[in-house]
Write a protein that binds this DNA or RNA. Sequence first.
DNA 1: TGGAAACCTTGAAGCCGCTACAGTGTCAAG
DNA 2: CTTGACACTGTAGCGGCTTCAAGGTTTCCA
Lengths: 147, 147
Amino acid sequence: MKIGELGQTTGVEVETIRYYEKVGILPTPARTAGNYRHYGNQHVDRLNFVRRCRSLDMKLDEIRVLLQFRDTPESNCGKVNQLLDEHIGHVGERIAALTQLEQDLRKLRRQCHKVQKVKDCGILAEIAQAANRIGGRVGKSHIAGAH
Amino acid sequence: MKIGELGQTTGVEVETIRYYEKVGILPTPARTAGNYRHYGNQHVDRLNFVRRCRSLDMKLDEIRVLLQFRDTPESNCGKVNQLLDEHIGHVGERIAALTQLEQDLRKLRRQCHKVQKVKDCGILAEIAQAANRIGGRVGKSHIAGAH
DNA sequence: TGGAAACCTTGAAGCCGCTACAGTGTCAAG
DNA sequence: CTTGACACTGTAGCGGCTTCAAGGTTTCCA
């Protein structure tokens, strides 16, 4: 099948498939006479595997590792378990950090209950104050974005 | 003060300060005879404000909006409240998504209890199966990375 | 058979919020 | 007067795509 059909079958955008090839997640496929990429069922399986891993929020680096194990069925799977445990750990840390963040934000939100002049708004005042309280002391947080 | 001192005072890296200037978060400061950026206390306050917002995981776009309100004390703060509410909403969604993800990962982890051959490992088998079950149906998830 | 439409190709640039260079200039201390 | 710490500009890189430009190939229909 051609790249468009592979995309249809797996629900992955064509550009993403080419990107996966470029970064070594998918092998370079055979080409037709007209230089079109030509795929088979093994590509569908592999791409579905990748997609499932991405839906579990794994990085491409982690997925590369898992694919390597998938490609060597006689090797032992201890590292797979370890990788997954670490990943679960990261997710747990993130949940904790975001939960703390949510509390901070709700507390901040309580500083302003009505629409008023900006200069009287408790939210902006509180941000400014907190900013100066922590001035110079905070390193980078280990949580990533919420967007 | 020079940029290095501003960085020290606020705990922000010099490159980040220049970056903030480039993207319009900080105003272009005065320059010394030797073309060094020259800052005052108002810059410290503004940068601290920005940093506090970042520690609350706001995007630079959102921070730009808040700064604009901060700069016009007579305007009304309804939009500030709204921005914050939306931000809290995003964080809440993320927590929910990550919590679901954590459950999925723990369930997956239970598929393999010991170190064995990859070909018998329940985890890789489960990923492959789940991948084909969902094949072609899933759009992109709204959760971002856990790393 | 011809011509349009749908598909495919490569390569580069853009997104976010920095971070890390390279190559040069300025300034203060000893 | 030299050394070293700081400052300057500009560019490239991170991840995981997404989007675009400028073309080549195939397919379909009249």
